[in-house]
Structures are given as structure tokens and as C-alpha cells.
Amino acid sequence: MADTHAGTTGEPGRRRGRDETEEERADRMWTELIQEVRVAQMGVQILFGFLLTVVFTPKYDDLSDVNQTIYLVTVVLGAVTTGALIGPVSLHRLVSGRSVKPQAVRWASRLTLLGLVLLLVTMTSSLLLILRVATHDGFVPYLVAGVVLWYLLCWFVIPLWTRYRHTSR
């Protein structure tokens, strides 16, 4: 008996939803993932480049020990964030032509999600450092916490809510 669901052809290897094979789906998902990574990479590379220059400014020597520690942690976070967000490109290059695109997409997606979490922590640390240096007011931790909540809402809560709300069961 023929399946009447939209997008289902009854052919082996075809999935419900879009009329595409597993390989076609992996190709599409890879293209979408790389576009997302490009956006995140741009931001993290600019931030990381800026962070690398701070240590060479006269102001760095005037930072308190706590602020210098926050700076060093932020630089390391920027480096590992860059690694996670560039990882999908390296993964693709090293496995290209090996007929493992669906698996590569899964791993690249995991690296990208890890990179976004690390970017959240890097941005938080950067903001904390900048606000601590710019002002000595006691509201800095609250302001940073508010921005972190905003990032969480924009980057995770709304997407996960949308996924939950609009994914067909």
C-alpha cells in the first residue's frame, strides 16, 4: 500500500518531510551549518583579536590582579571558542570524500553548539572585565547577569521553545 504522507515517496532511503535522501539531507544541513558557523566565527575572531592586543597596552599594567586573571581566562576562553567554531571546517576537510557526511554533520553540529556555549562564557567574561575596568560600581555583576540572561534567552530559550512548540510529533 502506498504511503500518502507528504514528502514520503515509499522509496528506501527517503525521509518524511522533505523529499530527500539521507545524503541530500546531510548536504543541505552542512550548507546551513557552515552559514551559521560563519556568523559566529566572525564575532569570535573580532573579539579574540581585540583581546590579544590588550596585554600590549599601557593600561594592562594598571589592572588589578583580579582583572588580569579575568583577562587571562577570557583570552583562553576566546582561543578555545575559536577552536570549537573552526573545528567543523577542519572536520569537513579531513573527512571529505569518505562517505561519512551524515556523521560529519552531527559532529560539526555538536562542535558548533559547544562553540556557542563557549562564546557565551567568553562574552560574559569579556563584559565582566570591561565593566570592572570602566566602572567600579557594585551594579556590574547584576548588569553582566542581565546580559547573560539576554544571551540565554536569544541563543537557547527561544530556539528551544520554538523547537518544542513547532516540531511535529
Rank of each mutant, 00 (worst) to 15 (best):
A2T: 08
D3G: 06
T4E: 13
T4W: 11
G7F: 00
G7H: 00
G10M: 00
G10H: 03
G10E: 02
E11P: 06
E11K: 15
P12E: 10
P12R: 13
R14N: 03
R15S: 06
R15Y: 10
R16I: 14
R16C: 08
R16Q: 15
R18V: 12
T21F: 02
E22H: 10
E23Y: 01
D27F: 09
T31S: 15
E32G: 13
Q35K: 15
V37D: 05
R38E: 03
A40N: 09
A40C: 05
Q41E: 14
M42H: 08
M42A: 15
G43C: 06
V44R: 00
L51Q: 05
L51A: 08
L51Y: 01
L52K: 01
L52D: 02
V54Q: 10
V55T: 02
F56C: 00
F56K: 04
P58I: 01
K59W: 12
Y60V: 06
D61F: 05
D62A: 11
S64H: 07
N67G: 01
N67Y: 08
Q68K: 15
V73R: 10
G78R: 04
A79P: 01
V80K: 05
T82K: 02
G83V: 03
G83R: 01
G83S: 04
A84D: 00
A84F: 05
L85G: 02
G87W: 14
P88M: 07
P88L: 05
P88A: 03
V89A: 13
V89K: 09
S90Y: 14
L91C: 08
L91M: 11
H92T: 03
H92F: 06
R93N: 11
L94T: 08
L94A: 09
V95P: 06
S96T: 08
S96N: 06
S96H: 10
G97C: 01
G97W: 04
R98M: 10
S99W: 07
V100Q: 11
Q103L: 13
Q103Y: 01
V105M: 02
R106F: 08
R106W: 04
R106P: 00
W107F: 14
L111T: 01
L111F: 10
T112W: 02
T112G: 04
L114S: 01
G115D: 00
L116H: 04
L116T: 08
L116M: 12
L116G: 10
L120Y: 07
V121H: 02
V121Q: 05
V121R: 04
T122Q: 12
M123N: 11
M123C: 12
M123Y: 09
T124V: 05
T124E: 02
L128G: 03
L131S: 05
A134Q: 09
T135G: 05
H136Y: 07
D137G: 14
F139H: 07
P141D: 00
L143S: 12
V144I: 07
A145V: 02
V147A: 09
V148L: 14
Y151V: 05
Y151N: 01
L153H: 15
L153A: 15
L153V: 14
W155R: 15
V157E: 03
V157W: 13
V157P: 12
I158K: 03
L160R: 10
W161I: 12
T162E: 14
T162M: 15
R163A: 13
R163P: 07
R163L: 12
R165M: 11
T167K: 03
S168E: 13
R169K: 11
